[in-house]
């Protein structure tokens, strides 16, 4: 017997996760934590999709979530390469060190 969870509560959890992620992106300077916060934000979006798919009884929400998973995997693959380059070039993981591209 499945437990019915109201969609509003799920969405509120998703929003909370999203805010946490955003806050992480804005305040953390370590690029690894930045990427992790990004993952949290994407998963919150995925959670909202799942909740919406369950509410309407449509499979689209789950498909979108799988898409987001694939996207996140690809993003991490690229981002880890960048992290490697930054740590080699600047000898630190502080993202503010890589701010030469300014006007």
């Amino acid at each position: 017997m499945a437990i019915e969870v109201p969609v509003e509560q799920v969405l509120m959890v998703a929003a909370g996760l999203f805010l946490l992620g955003l806050l992480g992106v804005l305040v953390r300077r370590n690029i690894i934590f930045l990427l992790m916060s990004l993952e949290v934000m994407m998963n919150s979006a995925g959670l909202a999709f799942i909740a919406a798919g369950a509410k309407w009884g449509a499979p689209d929400g789950q498909i979108m979530f799988m898409l987001i998973l694939a996207l996140a995997a690809a993003e991490v693959a690229v981002a880890l390469g960048l992290v490697l380059q930054i740590s080699r070039r600047f000898d630190t993981l502080d993202v503010d060190a890589a701010s030469e591209l300014n006007g």
Binding site: L22, V25, L26, V27, R29, L34, V95, D96, A98, S99, E100, L101, N102, G103
Partner: peptide
């Protein structure tokens, strides 16, 4: 003046987008 907004700081851009 416009160039002042382009700081090169990733988190500044993210905050602006938000």
């Amino acid at each position: 003046i416009g160039a002042l907004t382009q700081t090169g700081r990733l988190r500044w851009y993210a905050a602006n987008m938000a």
